[in-house]
Design a protein around this nucleic acid. Structure first.
Lengths: 248, 248
DNA sequence: GAGTGGTCTAGACCACTTC
DNA sequence: AAGTGGTCTAGACCACTCT
């Protein structure tokens, strides 16, 4: 563990355990640096992470103040879209939730111009097109339609799609997932959606469209994930000064 | 403008203008530091902001790579909830959109325990309760129900609620808005929602619940903002390593 | 004026990837 | 082995708030 991670965790624990209370001021940078035997820059680095997470606010000339408690990881299977990114299966299962996957279709198609543009590949390059339904605690909850270029994810088989594609990519291929851009909107279920999710036609669905990147900057996935809206919840923080946001 | 802001903007422009192309590698830290006559730490600081915005990926041992272009600020009045935070009126109006506000009610009530807990105040402390409909291009688009403690926002009048509360807070009171936590979910319109937004009952609405903080760490607003779902869109980035997210 | 956080540096040293 | 980014420092100097 790095020094700044240590400071970060320790201060965060301090907030969680009410050693630092909401509304109170933290010790100043010099003092913390002395307490942790590190430089002030390292303290700043650690506290900036807490700012990004929405737990504290720092004000030049005034001090550092506790805004709120860290919230417990609430895997109320709402944020399935997000934990999907983090490796759905593992996260949800350790949370004691039963997740299963139903593979609807697994094809290889040439990318049309729109898809090629999303994936930053040439038109007509071959991509996997995978459609799956995720079932959480015996309730169909999301429909995932995923597109990945064959060239970047070679050797993917049906069997992987029936389990976790992400563990194939990270575990077997040894690639690292770096980041994603997500866009949320709401659409109404068509007949196929309704059938797959066992809901009435026209029910609202939250559609998460995501482009996912590897750590070499290359796109490897474009996906549309439709969530039953009642089991969807998404929380984020917005910090004004640095245009940064943290996710719980 | 600080040095890191300068480097940040210049590299970002370089990406926007295809001087650095998608998939390509940026010059290394030492080189950039020399080019900009600054230290490598300053370059890192600037590039980390671009990482948080989802534009580049940095990989230790390998280099820094361009992921995608900065997206143009698309004020498709979808992200009204977000620009609300940034000072809705100003932003939308400079974007050439006509925004008006209809004040539905303006009361002062004692906070119940749940509200008091959200606002970090004592139960029964007095709060403003303000209900407004936002009308964009002559179309009612959101219903905002806002609660603010009188003690922290003294002197608020109906007239401010009919315009921009945020400019009262920042302009007149001289307070600074620091950050917010947002939570998104979907609900169906009840009779009152339907009437106010001129839509059928049971239409889906996106509900944004937000707690907003001042730069001294104190909560000053809790709000529920209901959006007509068809005009709602929300985009964000997720970066794995540092648990940071940027918003476009 | 005293105290706070923010910027910036020049350089040491380390971790990792790539060849 | 060469080249990349990441961590960390000790300190200078600046900007701001508070009272």
């Amino acid at each position: 563990m790095t020094k700044y991670e240590h400071v970060y965790h320790d201060v965060k624990d301090g907030i969680k355990q009410h050693r630092y209370k909401i509304g109170e001021q933290l010790p100043d940078g010099k003092t913390l640096a002395a307490n942790y035997s590190c430089s002030e820059m390292t303290v700043k680095r650690a506290l900036d992470m807490l700012v990004d997470e929405g737990l504290i606010a720092r004000k030049r000339g005034a001090g550092t103040f506790v805004k709120r408690l860290p919230r417990e990881m609430n895997f109320s299977h709402g944020s399935a879209s997000f934990s999907h990114l983090l490796g759905t299966a593992a996260n949800l299962e350790t949370a004691g939730v039963k997740l299963t996957t139903k593979l609807i279709s697994f094809e290889v198609i040439p990318a049309d111009t729109s898809l090629a543009s999303s994936l930053n590949i040439e038109s007509d390059e071959l991509v996997y097109k995978i459609k799956r339904v995720r079932i959480i605690d015996n309730k169909p909850t999301t429909i995932e339609e995923t597109f990945m270029p064959i060239s970047r994810i070679p050797g993917l088989k049906k069997q992987h799609a029936e389990q976790s594609i992400y563990s194939y990519i990270e575990g077997i291929l040894g690639l690292k997932i770096h980041s994603a851009t997500l866009s949320l909107s709401v659409r109404k279920a068509d007949h196929e959606d309704a059938k797959l999710l066992a809901i009435p036609v026209q029910e609202p669905l939250v559609v998460v469209s995501q482009v996912v990147y590897l750590d070499n900057g290359k796109t490897f996935e474009f996906a549309n994930i439709k969530h039953i809206s009642e089991s969807f919840n998404f929380t984020t923080h917005y910090v004004r000064e640095n245009r940064k946001v943290g996710v719980v």
